[in-house]
Amino acid sequence: MPSETPQAEVGPTGCPHRSGPHSAKGSLEKGSPEDKEAKEPLWIRPDAPSRCTWQLGRPASESPHHHTAPAKSPKILPDILKKIGDTPMVRINKIGKKFGLKCELLAKCEFFNAGGSVKDRISLRMIEDAERDGTLKPGDTIIEPTSGNTGIGLALAAAVRGYRCIIVMPEKMSSEKVDVLRALGAEIVRTPTNARFDSPESHVGVAWRLKNEIPNSHILDQYRNASNPLAHYDTTADEILQQCDGKLDMLVASVGTGGTITGIARKLKEKCPGCRIIGVDPEGSILAEPEELNQTEQTTYEVEGIGYDFIPTVLDRTVVDKWFKSNDEEAFTFARMLIAQEGLLCGGSAGSTVAVAVKAAQELQEGQRCVVILPDSVRNYMTKFLSDRWMLQKGFLKEEDLTEKKPWWWHLRVQELGLSAPLTVLPTITCGHTIEILREKGFDQAPVVDEAGVILGMVTLGNMLSSLLAGKVQPSDQVGKVIYKQFKQIRLTDTLGRLSHILEMDHFALVV
């Protein structure tokens, strides 16, 4: 994948999101292997301009796509893939009243899908469409860049269908997702969380590099694949309309690839034109409109599966009536509230959605109805927002919020430890010299600072030695090549209790 991002070429006709291997024109390309080798690009942008032909009021008969309808489940399912879809609609009884809503608040519980998330729908649909058009064949390999849930859905379907599955996901995604993927037989590649989507090191860039190296491999490409919004247009939206008897006044959905909100909203605009569509985008993402909503100094966020630093091709923002931004604290607070007060075992993005819903639905009156999409299960986040310690460490809970008995030293300040200034190293000294210094002084790690004293990161003896043994660096290389740029900081005025929580999850903390 090139470091400079080429513009994806656009073909003359058809839909841009065809499933299957992508040609340089962004659509299915038939021909000899030699032709494909000559024409197939190194990668295709996940934010390529959409060429979708959908228009409100256009006859369904003019759609270029294969459409399906929700099917009634048999008493005995032939395999677990038949437990994807037909998820329950559940009334939220307490939270709406707590925040003064007059309307009825309903939750579409997508964590009841077989793999635990709304992404099971698009995973199965992308595979079925690729099999139907002859792209996927027995023994082929599926590769997908994902925040985890699409990966789980694909790995689940691949396990049943017999495909090899490789999932490329950023490091910030939970260990629970990784464990589930491994249990399903998927191979996992992790990428830096802070890598831009168009960087060769991003999950998108690495996935395309693997595709170019592995024979008979395919990126189904949830960011561009029409099967993504079509899955929701054909099934999720129809289920909502049936469950609500066609009567709903507002739908609120958090947005990642945009397939969920695009597919549902398009069908609702056709069948229930008075329904307002509300999009939820986390602070630090750029999906919301108008652009002024996205202006923030924050560039990272903890909530998973929603928000991006690019506009995915499948996201149709014209069908969203209003956007709201959400933050991590309210997302996790509301997710825990949904679990504790409503018994809905949902993930953090569901918290984002409901946090926005109780604001947006203030305009609705008694007798009206708001539906929220709860995308995934708490299963993926047992060591994250479900953990009091994690919430404390991230600053989303305060010590006084917890009532468990603490040891005698818990409320003492870090400054009472009488710490001395640490050994520091410059980023320009060599790895070999740094190892000598650390061994001589008896230290395992040291902060790396520039000549102005600005902290650049941390270097550890173990990481340097393993990097040297693996051949990633040489003793003569500058130590700046092996620094940890993500590390926890703590102030002298913070409590030892807070430091204790940090050290339970990290090997060190830097006192500043």
Rank of each mutant, 00 (worst) to 15 (best):
C109M: 07
F99S: 06
R125S: 11
E171V: 13
G259C: 00
D221Q: 04
T193C: 06
K211E: 12
V204A: 09
I167M: 11
G116V: 07
D179V: 06
T260Y: 00
G116R: 07
E270W: 05
A71R: 10
R132S: 11
D86N: 13
C103E: 04
L136P: 03
N212G: 12
I76S: 09
T257H: 01
K211F: 08
A114M: 05
P74K: 10
H232A: 03
P33M: 08
A155N: 07
L28N: 10
E128I: 12
A60K: 11
S199E: 05
H65I: 04
P78R: 02
A71K: 10
A48F: 09
D234P: 01
C52M: 03
G31M: 04
D129P: 04
R209S: 11
I240N: 00
K119W: 00
Q7T: 12
W43K: 02
T5M: 04
N113E: 03
M173V: 04
A155L: 06
G57Y: 07
L241P: 01
T193K: 09
K247T: 13
T68L: 09
Q7F: 13
P88L: 05
F99H: 10
L210D: 01
I76K: 11
A207S: 08
R58F: 11
I264F: 10
I219A: 04
Y233S: 01
E104M: 02
I44F: 15
Y223R: 00
I219S: 05
Y163I: 03
D79N: 13
E270C: 05
D120C: 05
S23A: 13
S199Y: 05
G26Q: 05
A253H: 08
E40F: 15
M173G: 03
I264A: 03
E171M: 05
S19P: 15
G263K: 00
G85N: 07
T235P: 03
L220M: 06
D47N: 15
V178G: 09
G259I: 00
D234V: 03
E176H: 02
S199D: 15
S227E: 10
V168A: 07
N194E: 10
R45H: 12
A60Y: 11
H65N: 04
A265Q: 07
I166R: 08
G274Y: 11
F99T: 10
L56C: 09
M250N: 00
T87Y: 01
A183V: 06
P21A: 11
H203S: 11
G259S: 01
